[in-house]
Amino acid sequence: MSVLIAIPARFASTRYPGKPLVELKGATGKSLSLIERSWQAACAVNGVDRVVVATDDDRIKDAAEAFGAEVVMTSSECANGTERCAEAHAALGSGFDIVVNLQGDAPLTPHWFIESLVQGLKSAPDAEIATPVLRCDGATLNSLLADRKAGRVGGTTAVFATDHSAMYFSKEVVPFTSKPYSETDMTPVFHHVGVYAYRPDALVAYPSWPTGPLEQLEGLEQLRFMENGRSVLCVEVQANGREFWELNNPEDVPKIESMMAKMGLE
């Protein structure tokens, strides 16, 4: 099955304007932009036929082409990354069996997260979209709770049924738990990893569906699938010693740089 990875990136982020071009220093002090680090993460994935950056901004286009990425220009009217991936897929033509959306703010995404995601979708013929979830240890859960206490929107959490079909996604920390956890404890909370794998038919249909109240309230694009009765598969992935965090706010830059240094990532 042929696989396309599209990396949607926009300059006019509400929470963090210019985010794709923010520089991140690795363990050796080497500084690369967020979009380049996300592109490197995509290129490390096995079994992928093509990787493109999908953007509506010439500054991102120029930066991406300078480090060797293929760029697909998309409309400024795209409401979210899924709509941008749908436009990129249409511009490239048919021929891909699975389209992966690796959002441009997830440079710490290990290749095996995406490989497991693609395999999970291949193995679940009834699912039209799949997304990874990672069980939180106490340190990650405490970081999520600290963001909410400070009024910041940090990571997203997921709850799912025994068959791993999604029940809900939220920027709040769900499910509620009052139990204290040490940093290394495993918790009942799952961190949603901002990557999606779509079957092309569902991706093509997505922009035509109305935006429902849950998507509007949470600002989470995957809820549009659920509000329109489509099945979303949660694929549990393993950290294997890697730390994971997405760049949502300026405060996340030193956190991600610290993680990169600890893991020895350049």
Rank of each mutant, 00 (worst) to 15 (best):
S2G: 07
S2P: 10
P8W: 07
P8H: 04
F11A: 00
S13Y: 05
P17L: 11
K19T: 00
P20L: 02
P20A: 03
V22Q: 08
V22E: 14
V22W: 00
K25T: 04
K25M: 03
G26K: 04
G26D: 03
A27E: 04
T28V: 03
T28Q: 05
G29N: 15
S33K: 05
E36H: 09
S38C: 15
W39V: 03
A41F: 13
A41M: 11
C43Q: 15
N46D: 14
N46A: 07
D49L: 03
R50C: 13
V53P: 00
A54M: 12
A54V: 05
D57Q: 06
D58G: 03
D58V: 01
R59P: 00
I60T: 05
A63G: 06
A63F: 04
A64F: 07
A66P: 08
F67W: 07
A69L: 02
E70G: 03
S76V: 01
S76Q: 10
E83D: 12
C85M: 15
A86E: 10
E87R: 15
E87H: 13
A88W: 05
A88F: 14
H89M: 14
A90S: 08
A91W: 02
I98A: 03
V99Y: 07
N101V: 15
A106P: 11
P107A: 15
L108Q: 00
T109D: 07
P110C: 08
H111K: 15
H111P: 05
F113I: 08
S116Q: 07
Q119L: 01
P125L: 12
P125R: 04
E128P: 01
E128W: 03
A130V: 12
G138M: 00
L141V: 04
L144I: 00
L145R: 10
R152Q: 06
G155A: 13
G155F: 11
A158P: 03
D163V: 01
H164L: 06
H164W: 10
A166N: 10
A166F: 04
V174L: 14
V174E: 13
P175N: 12
S178T: 04
S178V: 06
S178N: 11
K179G: 00
Y181K: 00
D185V: 06
D185Y: 06
M186F: 03
T187M: 08
P188M: 13
P188K: 00
H192E: 11
H192W: 14
Y196H: 15
Y198K: 11
D201Q: 08
D201V: 09
V204A: 13
A205W: 08
Y206T: 13
W209N: 11
W209P: 11
W209F: 07
P210K: 12
T211Q: 15
L217A: 12
G219D: 14
L220G: 10
E221W: 09
Q222F: 13
E227A: 12
E227I: 05
N228A: 07
N228K: 04
N228T: 02
S231F: 02
V235L: 12
V237Y: 00
Q238H: 09
R242V: 09
E243A: 08
L247Y: 08
N249G: 01
P250I: 10
D252Q: 05
D252G: 14
V253H: 06
P254L: 07
P254Y: 14
P254I: 15
K255I: 11
I256T: 01
E257C: 08
E257D: 10
S258K: 09
S258H: 05
S258G: 14
M263C: 09
L265T: 09
L265M: 11
E266P: 13
E266T: 07
